[in-house]
Design a protein around this nucleic acid. Structure first.
Length: 350
DNA sequence: CAATCGTGGAA
DNA sequence: TTTCCAAGATT
């Protein structure tokens, strides 16, 4: 059976060419594997490494993470992107502590998938790495490898194509050496079977690759259909008080930068000025100070106009009674206690 | 099911 | 400079 030959060839290549010294490969503890897998979702290895080291130094185990404040978790995640991951990570830790006696249910793929932030592929990766049980992953690397190996056409954002890829990945997955195989197929995709200029000449499974046989490696996997990037314009309020603290608002979980702190944001200038006059009759706009930031996301481009305001009545404006855990003043010395959205980091160059 | 959700590296 | 998308999950 060709699938057995695939695993055999891949595992032989992995012995000498696989990646074995990444920070999360020092042990095979479910907690360590889990943190790395969540960080690595849609994020490149080189980007994750520093975040992983800092995170593990602060939260060495699931109990320490479960006991942390959301703000501190978000602080260590700020800059990594996809902040739902961080909020789910925190929730997941608390759920493992309260419902699973502090131990990940790694012997049940289904139980793992019922934890927040852990989907089919991540559950399989954690289970395979930590227990060696047979579990099928399908990350971006594996999608690319199997799409080429079986010459599967179509964008894998489509459900039907995704289903085919899962079946193909399942077919190739062996019954033994799951930790090694799981790492190996990701390494192949990351180092040889790359998006552009794959190194088929030295690929261990080239002999069975349908894309190579049909000269389709450049066409596969089928790229995402192009679509024009949406544009958004927003207005944000920048206020510093007499102590040098800045007024920040915690962003709602739904939407961009969810759970991070940013400048109070408005859809239009009228809303911004109205907010100052009614909700906070404490400041006056300084029209001469307007700063424009540009932020590019996967699905839209944001133009953010920062309007700098000055406090008209500092003694009132700085009264703590006027503020909540969703809206408050933050001195830059306390920036280490919360997660800051990109506009804040850009404005303060931190 | 299709859209949403970040950031930075590579080409 | 522009385009593409990476160790995907959630709604």
């Amino acid at each position: 059976m060709s699938s057995k030959r695939f695993a055999h060839q891949l595992l032989h290549w992995y012995q000498t060419q696989g990646r074995k010294n990444l920070p999360w490969q020092k042990n095979r503890l479910p907690y360590n594997i889990w943190v790395s897998e969540i960080m690595l979702q849609q994020t490149q290895v080189v980007t994750v490494i520093d975040y992983y080291q800092r995170f593990m130094a602060r939260f060495p185990d699931v109990n320490s993470l479960a006991a942390a404040t959301t703000d501190e978790v978000m602080h260590l995640w700020a800059g990594l992107g996809y902040y739902t991951r961080a909020r789910n990570l925190h929730r997941c830790a608390q759920k493992v502590v309260t419902e699973h006696q502090g131990e990940f249910p790694v012997h049940s793929l289904e139980a793992m998938q019922n934890l927040p932030g852990i989907g089919p592929s991540t559950a399989a990766a954690i289970c395979a790495f930590s227990t060696g049980q047979r579990a099928v992953i399908l990350d971006g690397n594996v999608k690319r490898v199997v799409a080429r190996y079986f010459a599967i056409e179509g964008w894998y954002g489509k459900a039907q194509v995704s289903k085919q890829l899962w079946q193909a990945a399942d077919q190739l997955t062996p019954n033994e050496q799951l930790p090694e195989y799981t790492q190996a197929i990701m390494d192949l995709g990351a180092t040889l079977c790359t998006r552009s200029k794959p190194q088929c000449e030295i690929c261990p499974v080239a002999s069975g690759c349908a894309a190579k046989a049909q000269n389709l490696t450049e066409q596969l996997p089928t790229p995402r259909p192009k679509k024009t990037l949406a544009q958004k314009t927003r207005y944000a309020l920048v206020v510093l008080n007499s102590q040098g603290a800045v007024l920040l608002e915690k962003r709602p979980d739904q939407g961009i930068w969810g759970g991070l702190w940013s400048f109070p944001e408005f859809t239009d200038p009228q809303a911004l000025e109205e907010w100052i006059l009614t909700h906070q009759p404490l400041a006056k706009l300084e029209p001469s100070l307007k700063i424009t930031q540009s932020h590019l996301f996967s699905h839209y481009q944001l133009t953010l106009h920062l309007w700098v305001a000055q406090l008209a009545k500092p003694q009132l404006a700085e009264n703590p009674a006027n503020y909540t855990n969703q809206l408050n003043w933050y001195d830059q010395k306390k920036f280490g206690n919360i997660g800051l959205a990109a506009p804040i980091k850009k404005y303060f160059s931190c």
